[in-house]
Design a protein around this nucleic acid. Structure first.
Lengths: 193, 193
DNA sequence: AGTAGCCTTGCTGTTATGGCAAAGGATCTG
DNA sequence: CAGATCCTTTGCCATAACAGCAAGGCTACT
């Protein structure tokens, strides 16, 4: 796991402060937007207040960021991803992302003769996104049974039972993304009771 | 209307419980993994305990999910994405995702003669991921100046100044992901479950 | 200096917390 | 069915965290 917990926790305060300062907002203004008192905000940013969801959700909304973005620190360095392919179930997965905690991308090579038709649809937490590079893909998703051709994309919630097949005859290459929920929640700010 | 804050807050408990039960884990086991006491876990799931980051982070890690996923809910429908290409700055963007609020993916076609070299590096909130389908891409990211070839991927924080160029001679195709959050985010209606 | 805006912090009564241990339920076994 | 075992919920209470007021420090501008 990439992100260490204490680090992430300790980073929230500075992160909040950075967000606010980038937007050139005063604590008072933020207090009005979020309904959180100035002193609480101040202590939150300085780390002397526990970050509860009750505090973080209005803040994430006020800043129009995701919760995870409140926790993650930025990053620097060579952006290129170079990782070893993984073999599993006759499929080849080439990792395209590095951060295990968040979104993960693979280039996946599915042989035409993959004995997939036996397998059952899977269900798990998350969100998946597929883009077909070459070959053809058969996506069974809940009730749907869909064939995707090169250049086509699909996205779905992996809580729905799903299965990716290669109907052949040629091997298929896809780009495959697993992510946290793609949907973010952004509602207009509202004052607390 | 997206999900409201109180709703999201209230959903955390059930979500935690769902995650645990899906994994067939007992509170005791989870307590060992996370270092959180059984009673606290129980009360967290039942909503009678405030979800602080101190509690949620170990849990998110134990479940290998993002924080946001602890708060969100599922969805259904035909997964195929079919949207019209967008022309901008001589580049062609083919949307591969549908939900404006979250992660967005594009197939981007960059002509070789694009007048990009004049442009300056950009900085904005978010996270970006690139995969080169064909042609060559020159990525200027902070201090780095990197050429990516087909099959290569890069990911970086868009808070770092960045610019994508096509050094030519042929047009380049890339897959481009922005996430988890851009600065300009629109609220998108979604049917509530 | 004087004024104004912003942020931090001491202080207070109030509330939440965390874990122990007992109690409720479900399941299994002979 | 009784007994045993495991899982979860909950009453309890000493301790810790909280929330907001108001005072204080800091900076910038006049």
């Amino acid at each position: 796991m990439a992100k260490d917990l204490e680090g992430a926790l300790a980073a929230v305060g500075p992160q909040l402060r950075a967000l606010r300062q980038k937007r050139d907002i005063t604590l008072t203004q933020l207090a009005e937007t979020t309904g959180i008192s100035v002193s609480t905000l101040s202590r939150l940013e300085s780390g002397s207040r526990r970050p509860t969801l009750e505090l973080l959700l209005p803040l994430a909304e006020a800043y129009q960021v995701t919760l995870d973005e409140l926790v993650d620190a930025p990053e620097t360095g060579d952006p290129r991803v170079r990782q070893r392919p993984i073999e599993r179930n006759g499929h080849t997965y080439i990792p395209l992302t590095r951060r295990p905690g968040g979104m993960q991308a693979f280039k996946q090579i599915i042989p035409a003769d993959a004995p997939d038709c036996d397998r059952e649809q899977q269900t798990h937490e998350g969100y998946e996104w597929i883009y077909v590079l070459s070959g053809r893909i058969r996506l069974r998703l809940g009730e749907h049974d869909i064939v995707l051709t090169p250049g086509e994309a699909a996205e779905f919630d992996t809580r729905l039972p799903h299965l990716i097949l290669n109907p052949g005859p040629e091997p298929a290459e896809i780009i495959n993304l697993f992510g946290p929920q793609g949907e973010r929640v952004h509602v207009r700010a509202r004052s607390r009771g």
